[in-house]
Design a protein around this nucleic acid. Structure first.
Lengths: 345, 345
DNA sequence: AGAACTCGTCCGTTACAGTCC
DNA sequence: AGGACTGTAACGGACGAGTTC
């Protein structure tokens, strides 16, 4: 009895109408909170709805209203902390705004895959697409083509004509560098993220700008790939440079690799070298030593993405301003020691 | 010219039919690869489809077929490596099987939220729900109620009547402990995950079982919350115990905290104490020292979840067998040293 | 003359009968 | 007689125009 799916068709609006003794149109009015329904009638209808466990069919509704209240979300790359967090909070924000989200995760970002994925979403009649991608190319792949729906990209560089939300990587990088300068460091090296990553480029820009303003030299950045392994590799290179007193690393994972390389080389952090990371992943407070880094507001970013969608769709609000990361000072940074200190301008 | 959304309604099957000079029904046959269409007619129709950039309406189709080819995915908790990876690979597997996935991420797991989220998905007419949740309670919240659609839970404990896929945490924990026993450790402590987490309980079970089989003592596990901070806290406690020569930590993040605590206490790893983690997060190879841990096959798990959905829906296949994590030996484990070694049975 | 309903049409597809060589 | 089509009804809601009190 009532054990498995009763194959009985779900109740329709007509079933509800019959049970409540009204027309289906009246039921529709109740469903959509329209006026001109007597309270008593409304109650009867609601009772019938409950009794029949009636739920309106989104397909039928979408067919006639030509609105699906559905959004497409494309997330590219590995399930890293930043994108995963952004996606999660965007998802929550969308649900709060009573939108449904169809997610398409993909590891490749070639133009053909990006395009066919976007078209897959369009075929589902999404009203807008949100794109969370680190690589410039992923954004550009969707920029040219006419999809018929607006695209909001989470992207820290201005690119083409897409709508855009972002966290201010440039300002964050400046904060990192100014913190090190404030401690007295004169040469601040940089380990950058991959050259195709927009965040990486913005951080390089901020690092170079802050250095330039203080008349400090900017040596060619070492380019990693976000992984701890690449941080380790470049860390070994840097360890051999006795001039270096501080490093701004473009993300926390690479900073972990650098820490590892320096420990192996017998360099003390922050005694010999100071290190600043970026992201403030949950692990960062427990590195050896705890990492000074920039905390990014992914909760806010996810909400901004949804706010931007609503703005574009004309439902609500205006697009938000970018947020600046917060410097979190831990013990991986300190004033340079006398021995290794070189040019303190 | 063609600048913004042409407000022109998308083409319908009738537009295509008219252009191809056939009835809309013939177009439908072409769309659905049904027989009894002459090749020449088919070609004309396909040409018309291309020319009008026609895409069938999923809403209209769902309305009449009573199938949406849509799946609901509920992911609870923080955007951690394990659940995020599983969700990503499930998403890809679903797309490969030509299913659309509606995702609902949520941080709370109370019964009311779980239930209302599941009902939200049911209202979208999903054909099945996949649930990725660490906590027992999240599973149980969906177990009792009659949703009308099958639920596949990613859960390492058998619970209620839900369909289930999982990675074999019990076997993984045994591998960890046997590795330490093989190295000669006689007392193997355990830092567990939170008691409401199924993975944590299974790992405790495996740890205790392996210990029991070898006649070794199982001291009461310390209970953390998966965070590096809790690992650090328990690591400080363990550092004070001079009997202890090895620790099996229930995940890599907590192991990082333990490492940090031991370093502070002047304990050498693996010189004084050996440590094994669980998960093999990307950072684990770059901890100080690189962490011996158990690699989980989240790619496989995501695919298994989709395979299980197809099995339940009767489309395909049979449900898959659970996978056993792989032991990845790095340098955080070694034979116990003479000084701190106690009861080597 | 409104408030409170009812009626009829339409949305874009697929399913089920026909119809015509 | 059967391959290659065409015509007509649903599917489940929403909305504008009628109808009743």
């Amino acid at each position: 009895m009532g054990d498995h799916d009763d194959k009985a068709r779900a109740a329709t609006i007509f079933d509800v109408a019959r049970l409540a003794g009204v027309s289906h149109q009246t039921v529709s009015r109740v469903l959509n909170d329209l006026p001109n329904v007597r309270p008593a009638t409304r109650a009867r209808v609601e009772q019938a709805i409950k009794q029949l466990r009636y739920v309106p069919s989104p397909a039928a509704r979408a067919l006639v209203t030509r609105r699906t209240r559905t959004l497409g979300l494309i997330v590219t790359g590995a399930p890293d902390y930043g994108p995963s967090s952004t996606a999660l909070y965007f998802n929550e924000a969308a649900r709060d705004a009573r939108y449904t989200v169809i997610t398409a995760s993909m590891r490749e970002t070639d133009a053909a895959s990006m395009r066919s994925t976007a078209e897959l979403l369009v075929r589902q009649n999404v009203e807008a697409i949100v794109l969370i991608a680190a690589e410039r190319a992923a954004i550009d792949a969707l920029d040219g083509i006419e999809l018929g729906v607006p695209v909001v990209a989470v992207a820290s560089e201005e690119r083409g004509a897409l709508h855009r939300v972002w966290l201010d990587q440039y300002a964050g990088a400046r904060l990192a560098v100014e913190h090190l300068i404030g401690l007295g460091h004169g040469e601040i090296r940089h380990i950058a993220g991959p050259s195709n990553a927009m965040d990486a480029a913005e951080r390089v820009r901020g690092w170079a700008a802050a250095l330039g303003e203080h008349g400090l030299p900017a040596r060619e950045p070492l380019v990693g790939d976000w992984s701890p392994g690449s941080g380790y590799m470049h860390g070994r290179t840097l360890a051999a440079d006795s001039e270096m007193t501080s490093v701004f690393v473009s993300n926390d994972q690479m900073a972990l690799g650098v820490l590892h390389a320096f420990a192996e080389a017998g360099l003390s952090v922050p005694g010999d070298v100071s290190i600043v990371g970026f992201d403030d992943i949950p692990e960062a407070a427990f590195f050896a030593p705890p990492l000074t880094t920039l905390r990014q507001d992914f909760v806010g970013l996810g909400r901004d993405a949804m706010a931007s969608v609503l703005a574009v769709l004309g439902d609500d609000d205006r697009a938000p301003a970018p947020r600046v990361p917060d410097l979190v000072v831990r013990t991986s940074t300190a004033a340079p020691s006398r021995e290794r200190t070189a040019v303190t301008s």
